[in-house]
C-alpha cells in the first residue's frame, strides 16, 4: 500500500520560509484526502514542496512509491500551445518517459483516460479553444494518464458545473481505490470534502493546523479559525453530514 507522511517539513521560496515545520500523520492510499484552507494559506506551497519543486529541510516520506510516481496538477491556467487535447495528453504521458514512438499500450492509456472522464469528443480540439471547465478536465486527464501513485490536485473542480464536479470526484474516488494511490485534493467546497474525502488536512498561515478523519477534523471551531465564518455541521434528511454557513465573523 502506498502512503505519504510529512515529518517536520520546511518549505520556502528562496529565503522566504512559508512552512517552518509541517507534519502530518501517515496519509494512506486508496482513498481521497482533502487539503483545505483559506486563499493564500499555503495549499499550493505544500503541494509544491511534496512534489519536490521547493527546497527545505525535513522529510517527505513516500512508502511504496517515489517522486517519479508523483503527478501534481497546478491550479488552472490558460494553455495556449498549438496542440490538440489528444496530443497534450500524450505529452503528459511521454514527458519523462522519452522516446518519439507511441506504443499501442500508450495510445490505449490515453484513450482510456479520455473515455473515463468522458471527454473523448474533445480529442481533436485545439487547447486554445477549450472553455475553462474543459481545460480543467483535460488537466485532470494529463495528470492521471500515467497512472501515478501519488496525485496532488490543486482545486480540480473549481471550473466545473455541478454535474461534472460530481462525476470528477466520483472518478477520482474510484481512481484512488483502483490504483491504491495517495490522492490529495485541495478543495474549497467543504460539503464536497465531507462527501468524498476520508481524510482532511487543514492549513492556515503556513502551518498544518489539523489533520485526521474528515468528520472529526472539520469542526465548527476549526472552520472559524480557517475561514473566519460561523458554520454548523448538520445531518441531512438522508443521513449525510452537511455544512451550513451562518455568517462571516472576520471583518474585511
Amino acid at each position: 500500500m502506498v502512503s505519504l507522511q510529512l515529518n517536520a517539513v520546511e518549505a520556502r521560496y528562496g529565503r522566504k520560509v512559508v512552512y517552518a515545520e509541517a507534519s502530518t500523520p501517515e496519509i494512506a492510499g486508496g482513498r481521497l484526502t482533502a487539503l483545505v484552507g483559506a486563499n493564500a494559506a499555503g495549499k499550493s506551497t505544500l503541494f509544491r514542496r511534496i512534489a519536490g519543486q521547493l527546497a527545505g529541510k525535513g522529510e517527505v516520506r513516500f512508502v511504496g512509491a517515489g517522486l517519479h510516481d508523483l503527478r501534481y496538477m497546478p491550479q488552472d491556467t490558460g494553455m495556449t500551445a498549438a496542440l490538440s487535447v489528444y496530443e497534450s495528453v500524450i505529452l503528459a504521458l511521454k514527458q519523462g518517459r522519452g522516446g518519439w514512438r507511441m506504443g499501442a499500450g500508450e495510445l490505449a492509456a490515453v484513450d482510456e483516460i479520455l473515455a473515463g472522464l468522458k471527454i473523448t469528443a474533445l480529442s481533436g480540439r485545439p487547447l486554445s479553444e477549450l472553455s475553462g471547465g474543459q481545460r480543467q478536465l483535460v488537466s485532470i486527464a494529463q495528470t492521471l494518464v500515467s497512472r501515478p501513485r501519488i496525485v496532488l490536485m490543486d482545486e480540480p473542480t473549481s471550473a466545473l458545473d455541478l454535474y461534472r464536479q460530481y462525476e470528477v470526484l466520483e472518478y477520482l474516488r474510484l481512481y484512488a481505490a483502483d490504483t491504491g494511490s495517495v490522492t490529495i485534493l485541495a478543495l474549497h467546497d467543504l460539503n464536497q470534502v465531507m462527501r468524498a474525502c476520508t481524510m482532511t488536512i487543514a492549513v492556515a498561515e503556513g502551518r498544518i493546523v489539523a489533520a485526521g478523519p474528515t468528520l472529526e477534523t472539520l469542526r465548527p471551531e476549526l472552520i472559524r479559525q480557517l475561514y473566519g465564518i460561523e458554520a454548523r455541521v448538520e445531518t441531512c434528511s438522508r443521513g449525510c453530514p452537511m455544512m451550513i454557513v451562518d455568517r462571516a465573523v472576520r471583518e474585511g
Binding site: 500524450i90 490515453v110 479520455l114 473515455a115 473515463g116 473523448t120 481533436g124 481505490a177 483502483d178 490504483t179
Partner: peptide
C-alpha cells in the same frame, strides 16, 4: 460498488484521428 473498469466506455475513437493526424 462500481470500479474504474466498469466506468470505462470502450475506447473507440481517440487514437484513430490521431493516427491520421500523424
Amino acid at each position: 460498488m462500481t470500479s474504474l473498469a466498469d466506468l470505462q466506455v470502450p475506447a473507440e475513437t481517440g487514437h484513430h484521428p490521431y493516427r491520421r493526424l500523424v
